[in-house]
Design a protein around this nucleic acid. Structure first.
Lengths: 234, 234
DNA sequence: TAACTGTAAGATGTCTGACATCTAACATTT
DNA sequence: AAATGTTAGATGTCAGACATCTTACAGTTA
């Protein structure tokens, strides 16, 4: 594990304090000098930390006046918004909203892919499904998850829409660990295999709306799985 | 207009050179010292510029080794990806892909909103449609666009999904000016009014799939309008 | 020969202190 | 009362220095 630089630590701590409500949106954060004293680093280090938060539109720096916290809906970092939205008892709600978002992007990408995916890629999709079946047989969770991710990634790429991939990347990072958990349940694995098979067949038929529907059912199942897991968790 | 700081200028110029292909993905950018000489600024200014690009996942800085350009699909900034994707003759394709993305988010949000929007908000929606009609009568383009944007923003908020709003914000900024152009055509205004009316009525019926369909038709029309405009443009 | 080790070059990480410039509030002058 | 000057405090930029990490290479040793 890479040790974090001081800049990263300061940026994290500052973001934590913002999320904790120490500096509500619209208010100003302490001056660079005060922060450098607070965190026991030089002013330049504080400035670099600020720059990273400014690039994510979390802070607005105004020369001569100070540095201000932007309202949450202007933040450009999905991870930061997730941290803020997961505060308190909102973690479950945030998880559901993330799946909702994923559903929009994946069903949309699947609909586009139906008209654009190559024959070779379709065969690869069936290959991934076969790999999922094989992994399920021998109870190899890691291999199962890998084939699962490859399946979805391929559809994303087959949509030939760069921006979808860009917006999906942070979502992918956030949902990664949760997917490993859900995929550990054998019953859920079987459901997933069936859904993936349906999606691949729908894409093979080149029918956009059927493809979208197939992916939508899969997403609905994922959402249901998450809800039962969240509800059952102590 | 605010004059840009040196940091912003250096970051922009560096991003320009990256997009121009001077430093392809995977390769390293010149060292901080070399860049500070090239742009005639201090090393600290270069470092702060790098930090902004690193926060957008455009660059990866590795201590002791150098600074490297990430592949485009890891970039977290929609604006930067748009600039890169619009290079050469790809601008039209990029515009189409942006609309495709907008379609996914707006239809998804509309579907969610159908089950969550309040009665008061629905009345406000009809109010916005009325405002669009009034603006159309007197040919007030600015007022028309304002009501149009307010209509869509309200649906986004009514979806009660924070992350959708976060992802949509940069899209909004990018598409803002284009919408002003398309909204200037009277025929397109009439089309838009009809579609908005349908969307509001669909939401009023609380039918998610009907609401999604109504928004989808609107997005389809927007895409068609864009295509004819792009094709007709000299 | 092969493996280990020390050295040095080059890169980023951080610090210190200084000066420049912008903003806002206050004091002064007209 | 309005215009102007002053000042405090904030961010913007600079210069130079030292620390630390990575890599390559030469030299040493088994």
């Amino acid at each position: 594990m890479a040790r974090k630089s001081l800049v990263g630590v300061v940026a994290d701590e500052l973001l934590d304090r913002i999320i904790a409500g120490d500096f509500p949106p619209g208010s100003s954060v302490p001056g660079e000098l005060e922060l450098s004293a607070r965190h026991e680093v030089s002013r330049m280090t504080v400035r670099e930390a600020m720059k990273t938060l400014e690039a994510q539109r979390i802070l607005s720096v105004e020369r001569g006046r100070g540095t201000f916290v932007n309202p949450l809906n202007r933040w450009a970092s999905l991870e930061a918004v997730l941290r803020a939205a997961s505060e308190g008892q909102n973690e479950a709600a945030a998880s559901v909203q993330l799946i909702e978002l994923r559903r929009m992007l994946e069903t949309g990408a699947c609909e586009l892919a139906a008209a654009r995916i190559s024959d070779a890629d379709i065969q690869t999709l069936f290959g991934h499904v076969a790999a999922m079946r094989a992994a399920h047989e021998v109870n190899d969770i890691a291999a199962f998850v890998e084939a699962d991710l490859a399946f979805h990634d391929l559809i994303l790429r087959a949509s030939e829409n760069v921006f979808v991939a860009v917006l999906f990347a942070p979502l992918h990072r956030v949902l990664e660990k949760r997917r490993a958990e859900t995929s550990a349940v054998p019953t859920i694995q079987e459901h997933a295999i069936g859904h993936h098979q349906n999606i691949a067949e729908a894409l093979e038929s080149r029918d956009p709306s059927r493809s979208r529907e197939a992916m939508d059912l899969h997403m609905q199942q994922t959402l249901d799985d998450l809800k039962t897991l969240v509800l059952e968790a102590p």
